[in-house]
Design a protein around this nucleic acid. Structure first.
Lengths: 223, 223
DNA sequence: TAGATTGTTAATCGATTAACAATC
DNA sequence: TAGATTGTTAATCGATTAACAATC
């Protein structure tokens, strides 16, 4: 007999937040927490917290709550933090450099193996101890190294092409910063960070708010 | 008589994508499009597209479809692109600089008025034609200038403090890159770009996928 | 034991999809 | 007019919340 549970994207998207709040609790030497207390901190309902955590097994104990250290560890495992990912960045512009220097990213197991750029002025530079290579050598590099994740920081015109080079050479995760919807084989995971969309959302919500009705729009004016 | 419609966050989050695909169509001189054709490009169902667009008024025409130029313009208005926002960046590290140099951001009406940083080595530098000022002068600057939006690119320890200075001096939109949930007055709109959460989501989804079951988890092993 | 709090089922809410009459 | 396609209502699906028996 076999029991499988589908984990919905809604739940997956909440896990990093649980992880962050639990780390905070650990840092403050909190040993245990109830769904109710966690609810007050994190802003999800206690009911939702119990539902979410129950997707993964029984972490809690009736009458007691959850053991913070244990729960933090388990969510870390679910998030894949026990694994390392060999990672490269393609595009060494401002954003690529910012990400290369972003230390959290290394701390959770993303090992930066190389950075690529087309610009001859950047090739040869060291960013965060990693040398910038010419994008012409990307395919060869992928064939000789076991790379798991590619971070796409190139202009949108080149993003689809780069993603094809990546996915046809064994990369199965893409962190995509180009404002475009990549077409990839279905076994490849793409996580988008779309700054344009985020900014437009801010603009829309501010506007909406300024109309005096948060999330409300006058479809027809008062007669 | 008055008719009001609440626009759900689910709809708002899709609007930037409509905007992007419509711009693409315009660039390719497409005059009109049906919900069915748009569905094939954008990946939402035709039914959802019609539902979404209908929140804002009747843009379509039976038997014809939607006028691309008109629809693009209207969605631009809903997204607030007809307005300008006086904007400042706080934190001139890698990320702050990347954003300052991000031209799209200017093109949709976010006017960069100043950049602030605590680091004396950065103060006085020009980034994207805008001078970096000392964060000590932030409050005074806000009192003398009508700033709508603050972009927070400081380390998470300082983010809440900065957000309080911003919101108590008239800023009503925050684009927050610090990996923390800001507490703000309820009339203030916060749009988060949480790179840590995005990366953990990637890691989680890859892991999930690697178990052979996309979005499926073995809760109990086969007996 | 009594009190607390989970795990889990049932109820509710909201978002997506289907269907089709209205109409261009 | 006939064909196409919207606008909109109804049906379905999925996610969130409520409730409470199980149990630590």
């Amino acid at each position: 007999m076999e029991k499988k549970k589908y984990i919905s994207m809604a739940v997956i998207k909440r896990l990093p937040k649980y992880h962050r709040y639990l780390r905070e609790l650990l840092r403050n030497d909190v040993d245990r927490i109830s769904s109710k207390e966690l609810s007050e901190k994190i802003g999800f309902t206690a009911s939702q917290i119990r539902q979410d955590l129950n997707n993964f097994g029984d972490f809690g104990q009736q009458g007691y709550g959850y053991n913070v250290r244990e729960l933090y560890k388990q969510i870390g495992i679910i998030l894949g933090l026990t694994k390392d990912y060999n990672t490269i960045i393609i595009g060494a512009g401002n954003l690529g450099q910012a990400i290369a220097n972003y230390s959290y990213f290394k701390s959770i197991g993303f090992k930066l193996k190389a950075i690529f750029d087309r610009n001859p002025k950047l090739v040869g530079l060291k960013i965060s101890d990693v040398e910038v290579k010419d994008t012409d050598n990307l395919e060869e590099f992928l064939k000789n190294n076991d790379i798991d994740v590619g971070i796409i920081c190139v202009p949108k015109e080149h993003a689809q092409g780069i993603s094809e080079v990546l996915t046809s050479n064994g990369v199965d995760g893409i962190w995509n910063f180009a404002p475009i919807d990549l077409k990839v084989p279905k076994n490849v995971i793409v996580e988008n960070v779309n700054l344009s969309e985020s900014l437009l959302t801010l603009s829309c919500r501010m506007n909406d708010n300024l109309m005096g009705n948060r999330r409300k729009v006058n479809a027809i004016d008062e007669i």
